[in-house]
């Protein structure tokens, strides 16, 4: 009888302490989850960009999800240079064709975010250094991208990311 009493006692004490523990952990959930992107940030919709003013060889910087996007109108020479590369030698093997929309291979649209540590590479603005491969050059740690914005040299592991996009018309592209 006494043994049973002790067992019931221990059970209640353990249960009470466990309840307190579970309750405390459950209360942590909203405190942690409040730091995740809020509904208005998640709803940040797609951006439409007018590209009619970008002549071949030029590029612009647009903003999507609060990050820079490079939109580049490639010249035939740049396309040729990109296609001439043996894809299998690349760190992140991708063809220019795969990175652009069929029929609009001259429009190279990439995030302006270096895949190394997130700096904005140079090369999209007028007069900026394009690096030795004629694409983009990240000044932070010296990553060099080619005319298809593929990583060629330096510490970055990946090509510049191509965001989801589609052409609403010949002059307007919708990102996101």
């Amino acid at each position: 009888m006494a043994g049973d009493g002790v067992r019931r006692r221990d059970f209640i004490n353990i249960a009470a302490v466990s309840f307190a523990g579970v309750g405390g952990l459950a209360a942590l959930y909203p405190l942690i989850s409040q730091m995740a992107p809020s509904a208005d940030v998640l709803a940040e919709s797609s951006t439409e960009i007018d590209i009619s003013a970008i002549s071949p060889g030029q590029a612009i910087k647009a903003v999507w999800r609060k990050q820079p996007v490079f939109i580049r109108n490639l010249t035939p020479e740049e396309i040729k240079a990109a296609d001439a590369v043996d894809v299998s030698t690349l760190r992140d093997p991708e063809t220019l064709e795969k990175r652009t929309t069929a029929g609009k291979t001259n429009w190279l649209i990439t995030m302006g975010v270096c895949t190394h540590l997130g700096c904005v590479p140079l090369g999209a603005g007028e007069g900026e250094v394009k690096g030795e491969f004629g694409g983009y050059f990240c000044p932070c740690h010296g990553s060099v991208y080619d005319t298809a914005a593929r990583i060629r040299k330096g510490p970055a592991p990946k090509n510049l990311e191509v965001p989801p996009h589609e052409f609403s018309s010949d002059t307007v592209v919708k990102i996101g």
């Binding site: 909203p30 405190l31 989850s33 409040q34 809020s38 509904a39 208005d40 940030v41």
Partner: peptide, 13 residues
């Protein structure tokens, strides 16, 4: 109001 509507669990906090 942003806290009350858009932040995760903001209304409760």
């Amino acid at each position: 109001e942003h806290i009350m509507r858009d932040v995760n669990w903001g209304w409760m906090l």
